[in-house]
C-alpha cells in the first residue's frame, strides 16, 4: 500500500523520531552513569585550583611553543616538498612522493620515537639544536610537512595556468613568477586547510610525552598525567583537556569562517 502522507507530514514525523531518539539517549546516560564517582575522580575543585597557574604558564605555554615551532618547520619543509613534487626534474618528484607516502603512512608516535632514539644514534655527538624544543619541532614538522606538502601542491595547482603565463609574458623567470605571483595566491587558497593542520598538530604535540622531558618542558598532556598520578585523582586530566579545547575550538571556528569566506569569493 502506498502511504498517503503529505511531504509536510512526513517531515514532521521524521523530525519527531529524531528528537525522541536524542532525548532517550540523554536520559539513559544521565540515569546510568555514576555521577558522584565521576565527580570525585574528575572534578575536585580544590585540586583543580592547585593546578593554576602552572598549567597555563608552563604546560599550555609549552604546548603552544611546540605546536608553533613544529608548524613553522613543517610549513617550510612542506613548501619545499610541494615544489619538488611539481618540479620538472624527475628525481625531485620521486623523492618528494616517497617522502609524502612514508610520513603520511607512519604513526606520528613512531616518528617521535625515531627522532628521540635513532637520530642521536645515527649522528653521535651532534645535538639537535634547541634541545627538546628542536626535537619536537623536528618530530612534529616531519609529519606535518607531508600533509602540508600535498595541501600546498593542490593550492599551487589551483592557481589558474594563465597567471604563470601572464607573468612569463611580462618577463618573469619561472622561479620569480612562482614566488611573486603563484605562491601568494596558492597560500590564500590553502589557509583554511593549513589552519586545520595547526589544530591537528596542537593535539599531536602531546606525543612529546615519549621524548622524555624535564619538569619545565612538560606540556599539557604530560603535565596532566603526572599530576594525576601524584594526586591519585584524574581532575588534572580534565583540566588539561579543557585547556586544549580553549585553543582548538576557537581555531576551528576560525577555519569555518575562512572556508565560508573562500566559498563566497569563488
Amino acid at each position: 500500500m502506498t502511504s498517503r502522507l503529505t511531504r509536510r507530514q512526513r517531515r514532521r514525523i521524521s523530525q519527531g523520531v529524531q528528537y525522541a531518539v536524542f532525548v532517550a539517549v540523554l536520559v539513559l546516560i544521565g540515569l546510568g552513569a555514576d555521577w558522584d564517582r565521576l565527580q570525585n575522580q574528575f572534578a575536585q575543585k580544590d585540586l583543580a585550583s592547585e593546578l593554576f597557574p602552572d598549567i597555563i604558564t608552563i604546560a599550555l605555554r609549552n604546548t603552544v611553543v611546540y605546536t608553533v615551532s613544529g608548524f613553522v618547520f613543517g610549513l617550510v619543509l612542506g613548501l619545499v616538498i610541494a615544489l619538488m613534487r611539481l618540479s620538472s626534474v624527475a628525481p625531485y618528484r620521486w623523492v618528494a612522493s616517497v617522502y609524502i607516502e612514508i610520513f603520511r603512512g607512519l604513526p606520528a608516535l613512531l616518528i617521535f620515537i625515531f627522532v628521540g632514539v635513532a637520530v642521536p644514534l645515527a649522528f653521535p655527538g651532534t645535538e639537535i639544536p634547541g634541545g627538546t624544543y628542536g626535537k619536537v619541532a623536528l618530530g612534529l614538522g616531519l609529519v606535518a610537512a607531508a600533509y602540508m606538502a600535498e595541501t600546498i601542491r593542490a593550492g599551487i595547482q589551483a592557481v589558474p595556468k594563465g597567471q604563470m603565463e601572464a607573468a612569463r609574458s611580462l618577463g618573469f623567470s619561472h622561479a620569480r613568477a612562482m614566488v611573486s605571483v603563484v605562491i601568494p595566491q596558492a597560500f590564500r587558497i590553502v589557509i583554511p586547510p593549513l589552519t586545520n593542520e595547526l589544530v591537528l598538530l596542537f593535539k599531536d604535540s602531546s606525543l612529546v610525552l615519549f621524548l622524555g622531558v624535564t619538569l619545565q618542558e612538560r606540556e599539557l598532556t604530560k603535565f596532566g598525567r603526572d599530576l594525576a598520578s601524584q594526586t591519585a585523582n584524574s581532575t588534572p586530566i580534565l583540566v588539561a583537556g579543557l585547556c586544549y579545547l580553549l585553543v582548538t575550538v576557537p581555531l576551528s571556528i576560525v577555519v569555518r569562517r575562512l572556508e565560508a569566506r573562500a566559498d563566497k569569493a569563488r
Binding site: 594563465g162 609574458s169 595566491q185
Partner: peptide, 13 residues
C-alpha cells in the same frame, strides 16, 4: 613583447 590574453589574467591578489 607585450601580451594580452582573452581571460585578462590580472593578478587578483
Amino acid at each position: 613583447i607585450g601580451m594580452v590574453f582573452q581571460q585578462f589574467n590580472l593578478f587578483p591578489h
